[in-house]
């Protein structure tokens, strides 16, 4: 499941970049980009859309944490931080940035694999949870809109609640549109409907 990931790496040390390019393929992954600083990392991620990012924290210019924040703003992706530091400040920043892992140097090959696997699977879980949340939130929004449209119908066409609902569904199937689209149209048209209603009286 975690095999065959497309991974972007960043470290200001050429040897370390080479190390990743050397050992990650052994684990079945592809290194799609190797950046030497944070700014560059953001750029290559934009270009290559990797499945996972491994970055050093301390690099010239933009550091790893800021780069991670930048990248995740564009698109959620699991990020593994690797650093020689592990003081409280950095830990706090890393935590706030929602990165998926934090490894303290020296990191050896054997440590890398489980860390990647863990970060990826955890991200997967979180990502699916987030998707679910988005879906539920949308459903809730839709529900509210439909209720609103129903209310307008009840008021302007003088219908009972279930009749208004049936009317709404019929309008959707008649026009071959989604229920939510019809509801939106009714809500948008509400002021006009109210005006017509007043004339009719």
């Amino acid at each position: 499941m975690a095999s065959g990931l497309r991974i972007a790496v960043a470290d200001d040390e050429p040897l370390i970049r080479r190390f990743f390019e050397d050992v990650l393929p052994d684990m079945g992954h592809t290194v799609v980009a190797a950046a030497e600083n944070g700014q560059r990392l953001v750029e290559v991620c934009h270009e290559t859309q990797p499945d996972l990012v491994i970055t050093d924290i301390k690099m010239p210019g933009m550091d790893g944490i800021d780069a991670a924040i930048e990248i995740m703003r564009e698109r959620p992706v699991p990020v593994l931080l690797i650093s020689a530091f592990h003081d409280d400040d950095l830990s706090a920043r890393a935590e706030a940035s929602e990165v998926m892992g934090y490894l303290v140097k020296p990191v050896e090959r054997a440590q890398l694999e489980p860390a990647i696997r863990l970060a990826h699977s955890r991200f997967g879980k979180i990502d699916s949870l987030e998707r679910e949340t988005v879906r539920l939130r949308q459903a809730l929004e839709d529900r509210k809109l439909i209720e609103k449209a129903k209310g307008i119908l009840m008021r302007t066409a003088n219908l009972a609640e279930d009749a208004a609902m049936r009317k709404l569904q019929k309008m959707a199937s008649d026009t071959n549109r989604k229920l939510i689209v019809v509801a939106q149209m009714i809500v948008d048209a509400a002021p006009t409907l109210d005006l017509l209603n007043e004339r009719g009286k």
Partner: peptide
């Protein structure tokens, strides 16, 4: 901090060499 960086380089080298 510096030692960890150096150790990391050394470790990276070792891991590649073992291969």
């Amino acid at each position: 901090h510096e030692s960890r960086n150096a150790l990391q380089r050394s470790q990276a080298g070792l891991d590649m060499l073992v291969k």
